[in-house]
Amino acid sequence: MVSSVTMRMSNQGAAEAASQGGSAADQGVGDAFSGVRPDKGVAVKASVENFSFYYGDFKALKSISMPVHEKRVTALIGPSGCGKSTLLRTFNRMHDLYPGNRYEGTIRLHPDNTNLLDPAVDPIEVRMRIGMVFQKPNPFPKSIYENVAYGLRIRGERNRSVIDDRVKEALRGAALWSEVEHRLHDPATALSGGQQQRLCIARCLATEPEVLLFDEPTSALDPIATASIEELVHELRDKVTILIVTHNMQQAARVSDYTAYMYLGELMEFGETNQIFVNPKRKETEDYITGRFG
């Protein structure tokens, strides 16, 4: 299991070293990470810097700093309640929907260096650039077609043929097209759980987000549906930067390029998935991964 991941990782690492040679590496953010350095060969899409989060008086995240590499999959792992979802939901300002949530620090989105957390930045602008797939599939009470067209419609797209094309493309991208091609106008709730989750992915893809957030996207699905979502995440990584929260170690090992291990609101270790799983620097990480704890 782990050895196959190692294979893939090392192949890919070699390919990168050959093609990119570290040129696109630092966006001038490398030094901002306390102890956590971005990978030299890969561009950084977003950088979290000294990010702390409070639910009322409860400090759920403590000064997190980490890079999110462009067109790579970054997994957030750690025991329940350690703050994975809290961190993930910060990227699209989901926390702004609820009163009493407070945060400090910055998340810069590259290449434009926008601080996503700046109060002057409209959360709607942020969400237009960063899509999210939830734990439980949450298709809208509309047809399959309208679910995928939703993002385009709220962005003011009126052109029928443009929408048709984008819907088709997004459903293809989410590996759902062949299954729904002939019933695009059926209600989305008629789909199976796994299909609904792929529909939610298609819904995001239609608006071509720069980053896709996944919060335990397969925890409500059976093994076959889970496998298809994992495969999809792996394919999507060529097009979009992905952050995925998962409780499933094998899943993190299978789909991700980088892994962040969190514990009690702190980032314990960040690194290439390969390194984290085969050769963790910290004892705690090793204990968690090998199942001795958590």
Partner: peptide, 14 residues
Amino acid sequence: PMSMREGSYAMGAT
């Protein structure tokens, strides 16, 4: 359910 609202807001809806 709130998940429906979150889904919509996450798409960038007002």
